[in-house]
């Protein structure tokens, strides 16, 4: 059965994030937001990488269950890590843990155990900064992801297939990304084809759409285009997403419109997930 390969230190998984850094990402993200789309995306990517590291946290250390690439596309296409990892095509989870660009202090309100809330200062690691300039060469970015995934598969022919997540405001400036996406998702390990998920951020205050199984709820033409190049969720991920009470069904694709994608990385199972362990 595909998409069942073990993810372990011997057989790590691979995430490739490709991030739109074009000038249009400077636009406000939704009418009620004080953040630009670029800032929202940077926040999402940092939270996703943080969650990946937490998934790999074992006692006091971090196991290399995953490799991660972050490719930016705007005025240039290439590695988009900030800090010590700048320029690196990929990093293992232990390298990510050891090398954030910085640790920002943020306030978080948590239950105080007596029915109230208490404000705590927490450390929030940053690996990726908001940048917005130039056009939207999505085809080139997908081509770059193809090169990375191809090389990884040569080394890991039986591994869990690479998962590529594209975060964008939707409008490719170097032509229809469909062919580049098909080429990318035609790559495969013995466990299945490369998966391509898309997160579309719109300046419009449109309703959030999570993992749709058809394009009928999408009015934006770029959203429909991104939906069309998004992979269907494999059965194991679908079951995991159902357990997380996400609105998925048979045929759901890895596509999110103006919504949270941080949950998506939790679709991957590393070992047993207790039924009474609510994800927080």
């Amino acid at each position: 059965m595909p998409y069942r390969a073990e993810i372990s230190r011997r057989h790590p998984g691979y995430f490739i994030f490709i991030i739109d850094r074009s000038a249009s990402m400077n636009d406000q993200h939704g009418r009620n937001s004080d953040k630009s789309k670029a800032e929202s995306v940077a926040d999402a990517i940092n939270r996703i990488i943080q969650n990946i590291v937490i998934q790999c946290s074992k006692n006091e250390g971090v196991y290399d269950y995953f490799s991660v690439s972050v490719i930016g596309y705007g005025s240039e296409v290439g590695s988009a890590f900030s800090g010590p990892l700048a320029g690196r095509p990929f990093a293992s989870t232990s390298e990510l843990e050891a090398n954030p660009a910085r640790l920002e202090k943020r306030k978080q309100r948590v239950p105080d155990g007596a029915g109230g809330l208490v404000e705590l200062e927490v450390k929030f690691p940053i690996w990726f900064d908001a940048v917005a300039s130039g056009s939207t060469p999505m085809r080139r970015a997908l081509g770059s992801a193809y090169g990375l995934a191809y090389a990884w598969i040569q080394d890991n022919p039986d591994g869990y297939p690479p998962i590529v997540m594209n975060l964008t405001d939707g409008e490719s400036s170097d032509g229809d990304p469909g062919e580049a996406a098909r080429k990318l998702t035609s790559l495969e390990t013995s466990d299945g084809h490369v998966l391509l998920f898309n997160m579309h951020l719109s300046a419009e205050a449109g309703a959030t759409v999570l993992y749709p199984a058809s394009e009928t709820t999408l009015s934006d033409p770029f959203a429909r285009q991104l939906y069309s190049i998004s992979s269907q969720l494999p059965e194991a991920m679908l079951q995991q997403a159902l357990a997380m009470e996400l609105p998925v069904r048979q045929g759901s694709r890895g596509f999110v419109f103006n919504g949270d994608v941080v949950s998506a990385i939790q679709f991957l199972e590393i070992g047993t997930k207790p039924a009474n362990m609510a994800l927080r």
Binding site: V53, S57, E60, L103, R280
Partner: peptide, 17 residues
Amino acid sequence: GRGLPWHALKRAKRGAF
């Protein structure tokens, strides 16, 4: 009791099973 790094602290808050 052991001064955990940020990732281990976040994971520990989810508890053990």
